[in-house]
């Protein structure tokens, strides 16, 4: 019998994710991939998979799957309570799910996105080199729904090495995020950058894999007119005319026309993606990486 997972219940939103499909921006295709890449990688490492093997990203728990063929599995990210045929198993641990058993994910006490990695990886066909669902462009497998059967790949050679994963669950209190000013802070009014770093910004209910709308002090534009569209990046704090920033996550558009006041450092983007509506984000200034060696050359205009 083929190994696989029968989706019984998908919760709010469950998608197949890997580390995305970089390299296709010229076709208008974004990277996508796991919203919290560190948690995603950890789940794969736990079951002995390659770091970029496809796994399931469940949003706010609620995922129920039945295993066809027994397999080792692990859940990281938001620590949803888990049961296997009614018996509790712990998140951040490696456990075995017997053939025909049902794994149920409850509602996590903190965090938003849980990663279920199964030894062998989710083996849906890749699209442009990735199995990731891009919710903005619709590329990759459709979001999971009851009745879906997800194939599981052959087990890798490497064996699971850790029983319990030494990580902290996403915090339920304020989240501190390092952010590098720019590249368009000068398109905002003087003082906007100070305001961004001085006050917390609350996560609103308008959040998805594309981005998080934040609420806090308004960041006024400098009135320089319209910025020509330019490439956008994960972690960018884009400021639309409303003055309330949007933090871009994995499925952000490839290009955008609103100025970016600062960019959350890549190591902190996953923690941002775990923040829930009502939680507050505190941005801390972080230095930009230097772009010139010890003897900087004069740049043209």
């Amino acid at each position: 019998m083929k190994r696989g997972l029968d989706v019984l219940q998908s919760g709010l939103l469950a998608t197949v994710q890997d580390l995305g499909r970089p390299g296709h921006a010229a076709l208008g295709v974004g990277v996508a991939g796991a919203a919290d890449p560190d948690s995603f990688r950890l789940a794969n490492r736990a079951v002995g998979n390659a770091e970029d093997a496809a796994a399931i990203e469940a949003t706010f728990g609620g995922l129920h799957v039945r295993f066809r063929g027994g397999a080792f599995a692990a859940v990281t990210g938001a620590p949803a309570p888990l049961t296997v045929d009614g018996r509790a198993v712990a998140p951040f641990s490696v456990f075995h799910v017997p053939d025909g058993a049902e794994l149920r994910m409850g509602t996590p006490p903190s965090g938003l996105r849980s990663y279920l990695a199964v030894r062998g990886g989710i083996a849906v066909p890749p699209v442009l080199g990735s199995r990731s669902t891009d919710t903005l462009s619709g590329l990759g497998p459709a979001p999971l729904k009851p009745g879906d059967l997800l194939p599981v790949g052959p087990p890798p050679r490497e064996h699971p090495r850790l029983d319990v994963l030494p990580v902290a669950a996403p915090p339920a209190r304020d989240v501190e995020l390092r952010a590098i000013p720019g590249p368009r802070a000068d398109w905002l009014a003087p003082g906007a950058l100070d305001a961004l770093f001085a006050s917390p910004y609350a996560v609103t209910s308008e959040i998805d894999r594309v981005g998080m709308r934040l609420d806090g002090p308004r960041l006024e534009h400098a009135g320089r007119g319209e910025l020509p569209s330019e490439g956008t990046v994960t972690g960018a704090l884009q400021v639309p005319p409303s003055g309330l920033p949007v933090l871009f996550l994995a499925d952000h558009p490839v290009t955008g026309g609103y100025p970016v006041i600062a960019v959350v450092v890549s190591a902190d983007v996953g923690r941002a993606a775990q923040a829930r509506p009502g939680q507050r984000l505190r941005f801390r200034p972080h230095p930009a990486p230097p772009l010139a060696g010890p003897r900087p050359r004069q740049e043209g205009p």
Partner: peptide, 20 residues
């Protein structure tokens, strides 16, 4: 990846990239 736009290019960097 290289993201072309109106008057800019955005270069996306991997984890081991050296910006300098």
């Amino acid at each position: 990846d290289v993201v072309p736009a109106a008057r800019t290019l955005t270069l996306l960097l991997g984890p081991s990239a050296d910006p300098v």
